[in-house]
């Protein structure tokens, strides 16, 4: 089996993969980074979103071999090494942006990609960007609120608590 080498959360990572090994399988099963979730496995739900070379992608719809040589960021690499939460994670905590938490890793990774592109998005822009991230618990209101709060905007007037 061919070997792939990539940088995952700032550290070199390598392993043997089959052609058909998905990036998400490599992350979860070879590297034991199980924070990235597989929800639908059909590129609809976004629970598997990670960053590859700075871009949000669905790790269930990309082969591990295609990430050879890439920089990959997963949810495990988002908080500071001392455990201090990233501003997006902290905002999800503060604004109750999760219930069961299954979609949260993908939500956080998509939110970080959005804020990198657009540091102060409107509510409509946040909702539009989350088109490929499905949450079955929250109804999205607090997720949107958390992301706007993470961008430094006043969210006190957003209706949903």
């Amino acid at each position: 089996m061919p070997q792939v080498n990539m940088t995952v959360n700032g550290k070199p990572a390598s392993g043997d993969v089959e052609g058909r090994t998905l990036l998400v399988e490599f992350l979860r099963e070879t590297l034991d980074l199980t924070g990235t979730h597989v929800g639908c496995d059909t590129s609809q739900c976004g629970a598997c979103v990670v960053h590859v070379d700075g871009k949000a992608v669905k790790a269930c719809t990309m082969f591990a071999a295609e990430a050879d040589g890439a920089e990959v960021l997963t949810i495990e690499g988002v908080a500071a090494p001392d455990g201090t939460l990233d501003p997006v994670q902290e905002a999800f905590h503060q604004h109750h942006g999760l219930q069961c938490g299954f979609c949260t890793p993908g939500m956080v990774m998509s939110a970080k990609a959005l804020l990198a592109e657009n540091p102060t998005p409107t509510e409509a822009e946040v909702r539009d960007y989350l088109e490929g991230n499905i949450c079955r618990c929250t109804g999205y209101h607090n997720i949107v609120k958390a992301i706007m709060a993470a961008s430094g905007q006043d969210v006190s007037k957003i209706a949903a608590e």
């Binding site: 590129s43 976004g46 979103v49 871009k55 949000a56 992608v57 669905k58 719809t61 990309m62 998509s110 990609a113 959005l114 960007y129 088109e131 490929g132 991230n133």
Partner: peptide, 9 residues
């Protein structure tokens, strides 16, 4: 087309 993550691939 699709969603942001799909558009990145």
């Amino acid at each position: 087309i699709g969603d942001p993550a799909v558009r990145n691939r």
